[in-house]
Amino acid sequence: MNFESPQNTRRLDGLENLFNVTLNYRRDADIVLREQIMLKTEDTKDKIFPQVLDEKDKLVCWIVSNWNENHERVKYYNELKKHIDIHAVGRHFGKELNNAQYNEILTRCKFYLSFENTDRHYDYMTEKLFNPLTLGSVPVALGAPRYIYERFVPRDAFIHVKDFSSPQKLAEHLLSLDKNVEEYKKYFQWRKHFEVKLVNYPQEHACHACHYIRTKKNYQFFRNLNKWYWSPINDGT
């Protein structure tokens, strides 16, 4: 079981012919467990998301602790902040948050920088994307290519940095949406039919693994786990 990206996972010798089952965020794992967008159930389909714009007193927010000047997300942030005001908090900025404060910020921000600390890996996206979707902030995604995000999230539910030729152009777009309420609201249309399904770490993983082992009857093993997990992503669709 591993939920870190290949970029942040140390390769280990001796993994060949060792494991029988994979539990991962990737769609081609044996047990796939990840945050996802699902059709609303009978109990929730009539519930309308309370889009209270009056409570949104911040335009762009970012919460970050793991800071590395070589990360693409740090380089992009340093350019973006030249063109738009960003409310940045987290351990790196000397403003650690508890869960209540974290939720409050995501609720009060129009846009949240869902910047992953890694990119170009199959199906990799984390709570950095799904928490703002849950709490009512529009994610601005940096990580895998847009087409991979669209496998899991409606294309009109988020903004991708690669939709713009530069951080300045992205900033101009966000500022335009800030002034156009009707255009901003379009990023919440998906909520009429869908909702976010979060994962209960780690209990849910254990339950899925136990169920899989109890019900699966055939035998398998992985000859080269390293090749599977660290294989490069394709640029095409």
Rank of each mutant, 00 (worst) to 15 (best):
D43G: 01
C61Y: 00
R146V: 06
K47F: 08
E96I: 08
L59Q: 08
Y201S: 03
Q36M: 14
K95V: 13
R26F: 05
L129P: 10
K45R: 13
E72A: 10
A157N: 01
T107E: 13
W67M: 00
E96A: 09
V153L: 04
H92L: 03
F222G: 05
N226M: 00
L129W: 06
K192I: 04
S5K: 06
Y122D: 13
W62K: 05
K40N: 01
I86S: 03
H208I: 00
Q168E: 15
D156S: 11
N103Y: 12
K45N: 03
V161P: 11
I31T: 11
P232F: 01
D156V: 05
R214K: 14
T215D: 14
P145K: 04
P202D: 00
Q7A: 14
V89G: 05
K217I: 11
E104D: 15
H160L: 02
P6F: 05
D85Q: 13
N131L: 11
K179D: 05
Q36D: 10
E182N: 09
Q203F: 10
N117D: 10
T118C: 15
M38C: 13
R73K: 10
R191I: 00
H205G: 09
P6M: 02
Q101A: 15
T126P: 03
A171P: 10
I37R: 04
D43I: 03
K227I: 01
P6N: 02
A171G: 07
N99D: 14
K58R: 12
R223L: 11
Y219K: 10
Q168W: 00
S166W: 01
E16T: 08
Y77I: 07
K58S: 09
A88E: 05
V60R: 03
K58T: 13
K216H: 15
V74C: 12
A100Y: 08
I37T: 09
K110E: 05
A88P: 04
A141C: 15
G90N: 02
G136Y: 00
T9G: 09
